[in-house]
């Protein structure tokens, strides 16, 4: 017997699976970007929603993945497939190096430090370091994915690649939540002193969250660069980081449906209301305030208590 949530999830999966058949190319691109942004939001949620690290610079890791693919492909001629591994590993390495010295800082300091990293990252891109990043215009002419002579060039291919990527991300999120690592993050998030007293190393699990989150964001970045066949700094600036941050909190920290809803509200809705160009962000700001007042834990808050069924037998 399926419960309500699984049914909604299944319906959504079917809808998303057939979505490309019903829409024009502009909306197909919106759909693809929605999938990619969902993946980034999920990876932000590992750090922010699970480990509880106040992280407001996530677009940086997303951008690192995108620029890794772009640079290796355009400047060094690597095929896109070959850039996938480095576009995941390089953000992970940076997450370790950058977060290491600051991970012990209190929440709000981390918020500002991570914003700082993001701003530095953007300056590195804009100043065309080593002539690799292309300056404010970024890098154009990124190749498509080619495998066994097939060219995955159309937007429909892009959509399904992003769809598979989201599937992989969800698979990892589920595995994380059902492991010692995911649980340790929650314990730290809820009460650091109690968590330490149970033998949990705060530093290790916060860094773990950072590194895994950065890797997933990097993969999404690689996909993003291929979808648009170009990268430029403004797609990865602090404003984008704030968007990912807000997605998680508006949707519901550590809640899979919550983050999807958050991504829909923060990314797709503004696309829908494009004609109200001027007023839409005003309304948006008001909506952010109202959501937090009415639902401080997000629109679809996380539910705990997902334990093996044999332990639920005694429950009355």
């Amino acid at each position: 017997m399926m419960n309500k949530t699984s049914l909604i999830a299944l319906a959504l999966l079917v809808f998303m699976g057939f979505y490309p058949l019903f829409v024009d190319s502009a909306w197909l691109a919106v759909g693809t970007t929605f999938l990619v942004f969902s993946v980034v939001a999920f990876s932000q949620d590992i750090i922010l929603g699970r480990a509880g690290v106040f992280h407001m610079g996530h677009a940086m890791f997303f951008g690192m993945g995108a620029y890794t693919t772009a640079i290796l492909n355009v400047h060094f001629g690597w095929p896109i497939l070959a850039t996938w591994a480095p576009s995941v590993l390089i953000p992970m390495a940076f997450a370790f190096v950058l977060a290491g010295p600051i991970i012990h800082l209190r929440g709000d300091y981390l918020l500002v430090a991570t914003i700082g990293f993001n701003i530095i990252f953007i300056q590195v891109l804009e100043n065309d370091v080593f002539g690799l990043t292309g300056g404010p215009n970024g890098i154009f002419g990124i190749d498509i994915v080619r495998l066994f002579g097939i060219e995955f060039a159309s937007q429909t291919y892009m959509y399904y690649m992003a769809f598979i990527l989201l599937g992989i991300a969800l698979f990892i999120m589920r595995n994380l939540d059902k492991s010692k690592f995911g649980r340790a993050m929650f314990y730290i998030n809820k009460d650091e002193i109690a968590a330490q007293s149970m033998g949990i190393s705060i530093r290790y699990y916060k860094l773990y969250a950072f590194i895994v989150g950065a890797g997933i964001a990097g993969a999404a970045g690689s996909m993003f660069s291929v979808q648009y066949s170009a990268v430029s700094p403004e797609a990865f600036n602090v404003t984008q980081s704030i968007m990912f941050f807000t997605i998680v909190l508006v949707g519901g920290s550590a809640s899979l449906p919550g983050v999807l809803i958050g991504t829909f509200i923060m990314f797709v809705l503004p696309e829908v209301f494009r004609e109200f160009e001027t007023a839409r962000y005003l309304v948006f700001g008001l909506a952010m305030i109202l959501t937090m007042i009415l639902r401080p834990r997000g629109i679809w808050p996380v539910k705990f208590g997902d334990i093996p069924s044999y332990l639920k037998k005694g429950v009355k």
């Binding site: 649980r183 340790a184 929650f186 314990y187 809820k190 002193i193 208590g305 334990i307 332990l311």
Partner: peptide, 22 residues
């Protein structure tokens, strides 16, 4: 100092952290 929002079983599971071999 319990993890107030988490279930009783999950709270106790935190004690298994150091015994888990994952």
């Amino acid at each position: 100092r319990l993890f107030a929002e988490m279930s009783v079983a999950e709270n106790i599971m935190s004690g298994r952290h150091i015994k888990s071999k994952q």
